[in-house]
């Protein structure tokens, strides 16, 4: 990931995310264990440790427009390994929440095929509605 640092980046969004997820985003020192263990890293686009770095540098808007928070399914494997005790699934949910509270569309939606949906576990359907729709 290349990142052009420009003066005047705003950290309001970083503060909003930190407040929502109740995490110290500056605790991360980029060890990368979260990205190494993430079972969905192949689909993230922006990897979990990069999500934290972007927030630290005030580039949260890029995340609000990205797939990464919607790909995170909250398995908390990263949280179990983080040496600083950060829980990225909370950070990802905070980023989803920011987007949805702006009334922008979720970046993942449920499948449209009713026949397929009818075969799925009801708990997964309810959870998906809860996490990727508003």
């Amino acid at each position: 990931m290349s990142l052009l640092l420009t003066p005047g980046t705003k950290d309001d969004l970083t503060r909003e995310v930190a407040d929502l997820c109740e995490q110290n985003l500056y605790a991360c020192y980029q060890c990368g264990k979260c990205s190494a263990t993430c079972p969905l890293s192949f689909a993230m686009g922006i990897l979990p440790h990069q999500v934290l770095r972007l927030l630290q540098l005030g580039h949260g808007e890029r995340l609000v427009a990205s797939q990464a928070p919607w790909v995170c399914v909250g398995c908390m494997s990263c949280a179990a390994l983080c040496p600083k005790g950060l829980d990225l699934s909370r950070i990802m949910e905070a980023l989803r929440t920011v987007r949805m509270r702006r009334l922008e569309s979720p970046l993942r939606t449920t499948q449209r095929d009713g026949k397929w949906l009818a075969t799925l576990p009801q708990s997964a359907v309810v959870a998906a509605m809860r996490k990727v729709s508003r």
């Binding site: 969905l40 399914v73 909250g74 576990p121 997964a124 998906a128 996490k131």
Partner: peptide, 8 residues
Amino acid sequence: GSYHIVTD
């Protein structure tokens, strides 16, 4: 993969 069975 959890609830992504519904989305992906």
